[in-house]
């Protein structure tokens, strides 16, 4: 019998808020689904859209991008810059026909351990329901004779 599908979720999180938040989730012993691979970067301003593309390229079924709430950035404005970029990026991806239900943007603070668990659970459930991102994966390796 085939294994039930378990999605691979890549999370790009900032060091100061969401990562600390996810840490709090753990130290608070809140259980959540283990499908997420967390990649810590200094700030959401550092999250190049190329990282998101590469995660999809390398087989992620879902992506979480998360950082400090507006006005809470450790570097004052990294998240504001990131927000603009995401706004444009999201539209570009939609124009290209990428399934944006697979990419979730969020703000999770260092105090929001429970929120992180809830976010991961929601995203995991949603992506699990969507199934593997085979539409994207089909093009990886295609076009080589």
């Amino acid at each position: 019998m085939a294994e039930p599908f378990e999605p691979k979720i890549t999370a790009f999180v900032c060091n100061w808020c969401t990562y600390a938040g996810a840490d709090l989730t753990g130290t608070s012993r809140i259980k959540y689904q283990s499908n997420v691979r967390v990649l810590r970067v200094p700030c959401t301003g550092r999250i190049d859209y190329m990282m998101v593309l590469k995660a999809l390229h390398k087989g992620a079924d879902g992506i979480i991008v998360s950082g400090c709430h507006p006005n809470d950035c450790h570097y004052t404005s990294g998240n504001y810059h990131a927000r603009r970029r995401w706004m444009v990026f999201k539209k570009m991806m939609e124009v290209m026909g990428v399934d944006m239900r697979r990419i979730t943007f969020s703000w999770v603070s260092a105090a929001e351990g429970a929120r992180w668990a809830q976010l991961v659970n929601e995203v995991t459930d949603q992506v699990r329901a969507l199934g593997p991102y085979s539409e994207f994966r089909q093009i990886v390796g295609a076009g080589i004779e």
Binding site: L53, H57, V88, F89, M92, M93, I139, G141, A142
Partner: peptide, 17 residues
């Protein structure tokens, strides 16, 4: 560098951004 499906898609995404 290769002009296969993923290479082309990513190129055009990057160019657009």
């Amino acid at each position: 560098v290769a002009s296969h499906s993923i290479g082309n898609l990513e190129y055009h995404m990057v160019r657009t951004m």
